[in-house]
């Protein structure tokens, strides 16, 4: 297969190159934007600067042209909000088989296959991709920087008629969560808004970012979406994850189960979070969290 990997500036394309490599003879990388680095392990990297508004339809047209020019039959897109939109448009445009958020690619009697999570993360399914062109999206890491700059090419990207970009406002990046080394997250077991201070004290004592479960964002509106861990929030992979008063439904677990050391505090001994934990603290969080924060803070003082 000939694979084309598409990322945005600031992405480390390497994980996507590695995803494609086992099933591909060539892997070329395209960075959509103004500048980008040579991707490790790729056969080539080129920065493609589009002259249009950058809307999804224009980007899809541009990528389709690149796929045609390279004769690529596997397209691997960084799973960002913007490129997920482009993936859908390209799937129609190229009559492709698409597996969003793929975790592995393989080749079997069924042809090319992609593994992805099913039903919120209960299981991993293997999908046969039954079209001449396959599209997958996959999680991408931010680049550490410092790579050699890749050559830049400018291409025309005509926008779709009827859709006009009227504004773009950058939002403050609150999400230190995705790349945090330590995360302390809390859920509904925390009873009042004032009690967040208690959890925050533990996070501070550990040098950790504060995270939460979905009801804290959606129902209680105590924290914003960038703090939410899980399927519809952020996926974290810290060295240490402390879950405070979180039951551990699968949609939460998929966002944190790759963490190195997982410590959970829950007063229900059969809470599902314990199945994903190394240390299962069965206790009232109000008894444990302040004492733990204090002991850690006293130690580092």
């Amino acid at each position: 297969m000939s694979a084309l990997v598409v990322v945005e500036p600031g992405h480390d394309a390497q994980t996507l190159v590695e995803l494609a490599r086992p099933v591909s003879t060539t892997v070329d990388v395209v960075v959509l934007g103004e500048s980008g680095e040579q991707a490790a392990g790729a056969d080539s990297t080129v920065v493609v600067t589009a002259d249009g508004c950058g809307c999804g339809e224009a980007t899809a047209a541009l990528v389709a042209e690149l796929v045609g020019a390279k004769g690529a039959d596997l397209l691997v897109l960084a799973s960002t909000e913007r490129l997920r939109e482009v993936a859908a448009l390209l799937t129609a445009r190229l009559d492709a088989a698409c597996a969003p958020d793929a975790v592995a690619l393989g080749r079997t009697d069924e042809g090319l296959t992609a593994d992805r999570l099913l039903y919120g993360g209960v299981a991993i399914g293997t999908l046969a991709l039954q079209r001449p062109v396959a599209i997958v999206t996959a999680a991408v890491k931010p680049s550490a920087g410092g790579g050699a700059p890749a050559p830049v090419q400018t291409m025309a990207a005509p926008c779709i008629e009827g859709k006009t970009l009227t504004g773009r406002t950058a939002v403050a990046d609150e999400g230190g969560l995705a790349n945090a080394d330590r995360v302390v997250a809390f859920g509904r077991g925390v009873r009042t808004h004032d009690d967040i201070a208690m959890v925050r004290a533990l996070a501070d004592a550990l040098g950790a970012e504060l995270g939460c479960s979905r009801p804290i964002v959606d129902d209680l509106k105590w924290l914003d979406l960038p703090h939410q861990v899980g399927l519809t929030g952020t996926t974290v992979k810290p060295q240490l994850y402390v879950a405070v008063g979180i039951s551990g439904q699968i949609q939460h677990l998929v966002g944190m189960r790759e963490s190195k050391l997982i410590i959970s505090i829950n007063n229900n001994a059969s809470a599902p979070i314990f199945e994903a934990s190394d240390v299962a603290v069965v206790a009232d969080l109000y008894e444990v969290v302040p004492r733990l924060a204090q002991a850690l803070a006293a130690r580092s003082a």
Binding site: A96, C98, T113, G125, L127, A128, V254, E275, V279, A280
Partner: peptide
Amino acid sequence: ATRLVAVRPAATPRRSE
């Protein structure tokens, strides 16, 4: 275009203390 051909559990539970 796509067809589910196999399913396996996503993660084995950790042995928790």
